[in-house]
């Protein structure tokens, strides 16, 4: 009787273990939330489309910030084949050997990428990353509550709007706002510059309603908050729900970032990952994503397509003048990151 029970148990457990190694090809993807066309509102369900075209199953997961993704990769125990970090994090992952070289022979669609998005400083020889989206930070404001057009980051320190102001809840973005307001280099390696920015953020704290990431949608759409620095692409989503919202690139300049597709060093399905990257660069897929996410596309076939929803849109593809006034994050030395994180912690605990 006992033996039978054991046999039964083994018979039950074995398929569970084996099924994890089934023959069906698979690709594990970890992306930002709401950062892929998912089939809502007649859009293309990109992951399902990939499964249909290639027969490779997509296992999809999210991360909420570059730091969060880094923590996941660093801790080990994750098994992703595709990740989409931002520029400075790509640089860090390359430096720490957490991503591997991509075989570009398997990515013929790479020709679709605009030349200006090739050989970027964070991956100068274009070995590890393929640009996915380009974004810029700007100022979102409620036209009913804010007087005039706020053309300076300083408005986020205006007493008049106390309690109605939001700021980023991740250190790099939040510091950048203070650094732009102070006219500092966002990649400064002088700790004094970071101290100055930290003091600026401490000054802002009494006026601040909240540090936000995704809550920004809710707070801005309902009018609970009226001023927030955030990513241009997300402004469109908010404006759909609150027509009083407007967007501006402040005169002090702003941050421009390139989120790029990478393959982690411990990826198990590299070839599938490369197929997935190539698929994301297909013109119809890239178009579907660009129209769903509202971020600027680095894909030639999208940008040059007159039927594209955001074709020559001023916010998504701003003028040369605005573009010239942008800075991109670079990977800071680890000690400086630690220093920044401490300042950040002090600001939040203040």
């Amino acid at each position: 009787m006992k033996k039978l029970a054991v046999l039964l148990l083994v018979a039950l457990v074995i398929p569970l273990i084996v099924s994890c190694n089934s023959d069906r090809p698979v690709v594990y993807v970890c992306n930002w939330g709401e950062y892929i066309s998912d089939g809502l509102d007649d859009s293309m369900d990109v992951n399902r489309e990939f499964e249909e075209r290639t027969g490779i199953k997509v296992v999809y997961d999210n991360f909420t910030s570059n730091e969060d993704l880094y923590a996941k990769l660093k801790a080990g125990g994750t098994q992703y084949d595709i990740i989409i970090p931002s520029d400075y994090m790509v640089e860090r992952l390359i430096a720490e050997g957490l991503v591997q070289k991509i075989n570009f022979d398997n990515i013929p669609n790479y020709v679709n990428i605009l030349d200006e998005y090739k050989n970027l400083p964070f991956d100068p020889n274009n070995e590890y990353s393929v640009p996915y989206n380009v974004g810029m930070v700007g100022l979102i404001y409620n036209t009913k509550e804010v007087e005039g057009v706020p053309d300076s980051w300083e408005i986020l320190w205006d007493q008049k709007y106390s309690g109605k102001i939001l700021n980023f809840k991740n250190p790099r973005d939040a510091f950048a706002i203070a650094q732009f307001a102070l006219g500092l280099n966002i990649n400064s390696t002088d700790t004094k510059d970071w101290d100055a920015a930290a003091i600026k953020l401490v000054e802002q704290k009494p006026l601040l309603q909240m540090f936000v990431m995704d809550e920004v949608f809710n707070k801005m759409e309902t009018g609970e908050a009226i001023l927030a620095p955030y990513y241009a692409g997300d402004y469109f989503t908010m404006a759909e729900n609150n027509p009083d919202l407007a967007f501006v690139y402040p005169k002090e300049g702003t941050n421009r970032f390139v989120d790029s597709i990478c393959i982690p060093a411990n990826a198990k399905n590299k070839e599938n990952a490369e197929k997935y990257i190539n698929f994301l660069l297909e013109s119809d897929v890239a178009l579907a994503n660009a129209e769903y996410i509202y971020y600027a596309s680095p894909n030639k076939t999208v940008v040059e397509n007159p039927d594209y929803l955001l074709y020559q849109d001023e916010i998504t593809y701003p003028s040369q003048e605005v573009m010239a006034n942008t800075q991109s994050f670079t990977h800071l030395p680890n000690e400086l990151i630690e220093y920044m994180n401490r300042l950040w912690s002090d600001i939040l605990m203040k």
């Binding site: 910030s65 730091e67 923590a71 909240m210 912690s345 939040l348 605990m349």
Partner: peptide, 17 residues
């Protein structure tokens, strides 16, 4: 932003820092 509790600090120390 002004009522941070120790649990928030722990979360941030692990995930952000």
């Amino acid at each position: 932003g002004t009522n941070e509790m120790i649990g928030d600090v722990i979360e941030r120390t692990f995930l952000t820092e």
